[in-house]
Design a protein around this nucleic acid. Sequence first.
DNA 1: CGTTAATGACTAATTTAATGAACACAATAA
DNA 2: TTATTGTGTTCATTAAATTAGTCATTAACG
Lengths: 110, 110
Amino acid sequence: MKRKRSYSRATHHALSILGSMIRIGRTERNMTAQELADRAGISRTTLHNIEKGAPGPEIGTVFEVACLVGVPLFDTDNRVLALQDARLREKLTLMPKAVRPVTQEVDDDF
Amino acid sequence: MKRKRSYSRATHHALSILGSMIRIGRTERNMTAQELADRAGISRTTLHNIEKGAPGPEIGTVFEVACLVGVPLFDTDNRVLALQDARLREKLTLMPKAVRPVTQEVDDDF
DNA sequence: CGTTAATGACTAATTTAATGAACACAATAA
DNA sequence: TTATTGTGTTCATTAAATTAGTCATTAACG
């Protein structure tokens, strides 16, 4: 089963940006790749892929690394983040739980 | 070797937020989970994990899905994204290519 | 300039995510 | 209500990421 995926330009750019920001953050904090990898609990190889902007790594580890070097993901402040999260989840409860496909309304008497 | 990872609260929140935003975006566009999964070239199960805010999915697929439902990653506009990317990469060339460990400057004659 | 460590690029072995199918349940439309 | 479809979840299989290791190259700094 081939899993070979393709990604849009926007996705590639976003990945590249995030990777660059992480590397810049790490460098600014004078951390070696090994140090940061150890802190994040990942291998130097994986960190290298993350900084390169590879699409493969798990999003959880990437976000964790970003946090470690001070790259703001959605908001720098943790409390704001929690608030935003709660608000979004609340909004979700008010939305339809299931999306019905648009009924084609067959109109074959023309 | 068990890999059992742990993630900071900030990471969990960011994941949860992104997942919620994706689900909201999908619902607002009246897309079923299957539709979006098909467009992104992933399974419905994986999409479900993404919307749930699971740390496991690949960052590339998450970003791709986010783009498909109009969730702004760093900037909505693709051109701005490209510009930002180029600027960051340029900044990187001006930064030290390697981080040297802080020389402890042993000061044992006290 | 020379030393030394960081980084980049591979490898093979292990661990994990992605998948598709299955099922129960919820929610919508007729 | 009844029928139909979307969603949440689990599970075995398969494909891919992660890992540790080594090596060559590069860059920092005395």
